[in-house]
Design a protein around this nucleic acid. Sequence first.
DNA 1: CTGTGTGCAAACTCTTTGCATAAGT
DNA 2: ACTTATGCAAAGAGTTTGCACACAG
Lengths: 145, 145
Amino acid sequence: MESKQEHTPCPTRLAGDRLRSVGLRPTRQRIALAGLLFAKGDRHLTAEELHEEAVSAGVPVSLATVYNTLHQFTDAGMLRVLAVESSKTYFDTNTSDHQHFFIEGDNEVMDIPTGGISIDGLPDVPEGMEVAHIDVIVRLRRKSS
Amino acid sequence: MESKQEHTPCPTRLAGDRLRSVGLRPTRQRIALAGLLFAKGDRHLTAEELHEEAVSAGVPVSLATVYNTLHQFTDAGMLRVLAVESSKTYFDTNTSDHQHFFIEGDNEVMDIPTGGISIDGLPDVPEGMEVAHIDVIVRLRRKSS
DNA sequence: CTGTGTGCAAACTCTTTGCATAAGT
DNA sequence: ACTTATGCAAAGAGTTTGCACACAG
C-alpha cells in the first residue's frame, strides 16, 4: 500500500528488520543464520550443526562466527540455551515455556507438546531467590523389549 | 598395636566392601574418594572439586584417576550424572529420584526437598521409547528487588 | 607373581578470543 | 569514512587416553 516493495515477500528483509529491532546489524551471515534457524519451525541444534548446515547451504561462515551469532541471538532473546548433556550446548529457537524429550543415544532433542506437563508443589525457594526458569527434560531410551 | 580389629568401626573396610560388591578393587584412591563422596550426605560436585578436596585431605590422587573413578562409580550405580550446564559435569551422590535447584551465578546445585515437585500429564512417549529418567532443574537467581 | 589401577602428559572436543581484513550504514 | 562484524588460527577449559610403573590379591 505505501510502496511497491510489499509485493516481494523477501525473507532477507524480514530477517533484517528483526535483527535491527534487537540492535544487531543485519549482515550477510546473521541474516543467513537467522534464516536457517527460524524458517522451519522450532529447532534444537548445536553450533557445529548450524555451521554445517550453513556451509551446505552455500553460506560460507566460520564456526567462530556461528558461535558468536548464536550467543548474540541468545542475548537478544531470540534463542534459549538448553542444558541436556554436558559438553554440548544446544540452542532452542523456541523461547517460550516448554519442556523437552531427549533421546539418549541419538542425542536428539524434541519439544514436548504444549500443555503436556504440569508441575505441582514447587517447594520453598531459598530466601532472596526467585525462580528464573524450570527445565524439565524427559530422557527417553529405546525400549529394550 | 592391638589385634582386636573388630572393635574398630573402620570406614575403610566398609568402603572396601562396598567397592568389592560392585566389582571394583578397593584401592587406596577409590577408598579415599568414596570416603569423601559418601561420608557427608548428598553431594553434587565436579571432578575438579573432588580432586581438590582429595589433595587437600592429603590423598594425592591424579585428576585423571578422579575422572576414571567417578565414571566407574557411575557405571556401578553409586553416582548419577547431572546436566545442569554445558561444559561441566556434576556428579550426584544421591541416585534416587529427586530434583534440583541450580543457583545461577554461584553454580551451586542443591537437592529439592523430597516430595517437593510432582509432575502430571506426561504426554505420549514416541513409539518404541520408554522414559529413562525425568530431570527437573529449577534455576534460581538472586532477587533483584 | 599376575593382572588391574594409577599417574603423567599428550591428545581431543567444544568453545572463546585477538587481531587483521571485510562489510555495513 | 567510520564503525562493527568476520575469519582465521591460536588459546583455553574440561575431559579422555596410552603407556610405563605400582599396587592388590
